Measured scan of single mutants.
Amino acid sequence: YETDHQDYCEVCQQGGEIILCDTCPRAYHLVCLDPELEKAPEGKWSCPHCEKE
């Protein structure tokens, strides 16, 4: 399936195990989030940028 999400972390610009925001195209490593997450959230997730909106 096709997605318009970026394939690198918004914070460190590296690829790998990233989680995708359900609201925007941004993607993040769990450890690059502040506060960092230990595991990917279940269900819908909005990144810090979208949470501020």
Score class of each variant (00 low, 15 high):
residue 6 Q to G: 04
residue 12 C to L: 00
residue 19 I to C: 07
residue 51 E to N: 12
residue 43 G to Q: 08
residue 43 G to P: 11
residue 8 Y to F: 05
residue 13 Q to V: 12
residue 11 V to S: 15
residue 23 T to W: 03
residue 41 P to W: 04
residue 40 A to P: 10
residue 49 H to F: 15
residue 35 P to K: 12
residue 52 K to I: 00
residue 27 A to M: 04
residue 49 H to E: 05
residue 9 C to E: 02
residue 2 E to W: 08
residue 43 G to S: 12
residue 4 D to N: 13
residue 31 V to A: 09
residue 10 E to V: 14
residue 46 S to P: 07
residue 34 D to K: 03
residue 5 H to S: 15
residue 45 W to V: 10
residue 38 E to R: 07
residue 44 K to M: 13
residue 34 D to S: 12
residue 6 Q to E: 06
residue 45 W to S: 09
residue 31 V to Q: 04
residue 21 C to T: 00
residue 11 V to C: 14
residue 40 A to T: 08
residue 14 Q to K: 08
residue 46 S to W: 07
residue 9 C to P: 02
residue 14 Q to V: 07
residue 39 K to I: 09
residue 32 C to T: 00
residue 26 R to P: 01
residue 26 R to V: 05
residue 3 T to Y: 14
residue 7 D to I: 04
residue 9 C to M: 01
residue 37 L to V: 10
residue 25 P to I: 12
residue 24 C to V: 00
residue 47 C to Q: 00
residue 47 C to Y: 00
residue 16 G to C: 04
residue 12 C to Q: 01
residue 20 L to P: 14
residue 9 C to K: 01
residue 9 C to L: 01
residue 29 H to N: 01
residue 17 E to R: 06
residue 16 G to Q: 14
residue 34 D to F: 09
residue 7 D to T: 13
residue 1 Y to V: 13
residue 20 L to R: 15
residue 10 E to R: 11
residue 45 W to E: 06
residue 29 H to K: 01
residue 30 L to W: 09
residue 34 D to Y: 04
residue 47 C to G: 01
residue 27 A to Q: 14
residue 4 D to F: 11
residue 27 A to T: 12
residue 22 D to N: 10
residue 36 E to Q: 11
residue 25 P to R: 07
residue 23 T to K: 02
residue 5 H to R: 14
residue 39 K to A: 08
residue 17 E to C: 08
residue 41 P to A: 12
residue 11 V to D: 11
residue 23 T to V: 05
residue 30 L to N: 09
residue 18 I to G: 11
residue 32 C to S: 01
residue 25 P to L: 06
residue 49 H to A: 10
residue 44 K to T: 10
residue 46 S to K: 04
residue 52 K to F: 05
residue 24 C to I: 00
residue 47 C to H: 05
residue 40 A to F: 15
residue 46 S to Y: 04
residue 15 G to S: 11
residue 40 A to D: 05
residue 13 Q to K: 05
residue 17 E to T: 07
residue 21 C to S: 01
residue 50 C to F: 02
residue 23 T to C: 06
residue 34 D to V: 07
residue 19 I to G: 06
residue 51 E to C: 07
residue 31 V to N: 06
residue 37 L to M: 07
residue 3 T to V: 11
residue 32 C to P: 00
residue 4 D to G: 10
residue 11 V to Y: 11
residue 15 G to A: 14
residue 32 C to G: 00
residue 47 C to K: 02
residue 41 P to R: 08
residue 8 Y to K: 09
residue 20 L to K: 12
residue 13 Q to N: 11
residue 19 I to M: 14
residue 33 L to S: 14
residue 5 H to K: 11
residue 21 C to H: 01
residue 48 P to S: 10
residue 28 Y to N: 06
residue 45 W to H: 15
